[in-house]
């Protein structure tokens, strides 16, 4: 299983539409709207890098998304 965070910049405008589209995408485990350098952070869980590419592709196809940066998780400690 590959887990990754994708950090997203979106155009100023109706962010709820972007979120609505993202909520339809499979393999996205979590979506958070954040305040800071980025606008949205999502957590993806996929079986292969190939699937990860498909997810990032789908995100980039959403109107309003300017840039995505993918961070693959190498190691994790969680509660």
């Amino acid at each position: 299983m590959i887990n990754a965070y994708i950090l997203i910049h979106v155009k100023t405008g109706p962010s709820d539409k972007v979120i609505k589209e993202m909520r339809k995408i499979e393999n996205i485990r979590k979506i958070s709207i954040i305040a800071g350098d980025y606008d949205i952070i999502i957590r993806v869980e996929v079986k292969s890098l190939d699937k990860l590419l498909k997810v990032t592709n789908k995100i980039q196809m959403i109107e309003g998304v300017i840039k995505t940066t993918t961070h693959i998780i190498e190691k994790e400690i969680a509660l």
């Binding site: 990754a4 965070y5 940066t69 961070h71 998780i73 190498e74 994790e76 400690i77 969680a78 509660l79």
Partner: peptide, 11 residues
């Protein structure tokens, strides 16, 4: 802190 991830990329 309830989650720490070592990641590839900008950070």
């Amino acid at each position: 802190v309830n989650r720490v991830c070592a990641v590839t990329g900008d950070y």
